[in-house]
Amino acid sequence: MSSNRRRTGALLAAGLLTLCCACGADDSGTDRTPSDPLPSPDLSLEGPQRSVSRPLDVRGVVACSVLDAEAAQAVGLSVTTAADESTAAASSCAWRSPDKSLDVDIVINTDLGLDFVYAQRDTFETFEEFEIRSYPALRLSPGTSPTCEVWVGLAERQVLVVHANSLKAEAPRLCEAAVNVSASVLVTLGEA
């Protein structure tokens, strides 16, 4: 597993731990019981960049089923390489190009929202807000290697994450691939 995929996995896992762990001490130093709610993160940005006007419920959707062959080939991915890498935390699918110059991971997480990423915005070299097919999206890059992540808010606590990585490609091509894959997945999800 590449270090960038480990970063995405760690980011998703950290989010799930942050959202799901209801034990131990909170920021004030007081102990909480498992039934106590987690404190809300202090997020300075509020507004339409996080709102989802047409929420999609993707609970139970399998990540390997959301990218059609034509869309995969359009960004240079092999249709025969889709590999299910799902965990208990999220449905995940890894796609590869025939020459192995491009890796694209599609993750559908139903326990995180974009607020989780906003709370960590200072950890990314690139943090760009935009929309894909009227859904709020973020383009992220840690700046340490050619990688690009696109997070799309599907509902308040549901996101699509497309992670593009390559040792050969430059970041702009990777982000173009990640955005195109995200747009194609949104079409598929909207038709479901």
Rank of each mutant, 00 (worst) to 15 (best):
S3P: 04
A10K: 13
A14C: 00
C21Q: 03
D26M: 04
D27E: 10
G29D: 07
D31W: 12
L43I: 11
L45M: 12
E46R: 15
V58Q: 08
R59N: 14
C64W: 10
C64Y: 01
S65E: 15
D68N: 05
D68L: 02
A72L: 05
Q73W: 05
G76S: 06
G76M: 00
S78G: 06
T80N: 15
T80D: 15
A83D: 06
A94D: 13
P98I: 00
D99A: 03
D99L: 00
K100F: 01
I106C: 03
I108W: 02
L112E: 03
D115Q: 08
F116H: 08
V117F: 15
V117E: 10
V117H: 07
V117N: 00
Q120M: 05
T123L: 00
Y135G: 00
R139D: 11
L140R: 12
S141D: 10
G143C: 08
P146R: 07
P146E: 06
T147H: 15
V150P: 04
G153C: 02
L154A: 02
A155S: 08
V161C: 00
H163K: 04
A164L: 07
S166P: 01
A169H: 11
A169K: 06
A171T: 08
C175N: 05
E176S: 06
T188D: 02
E191V: 01
E191M: 11
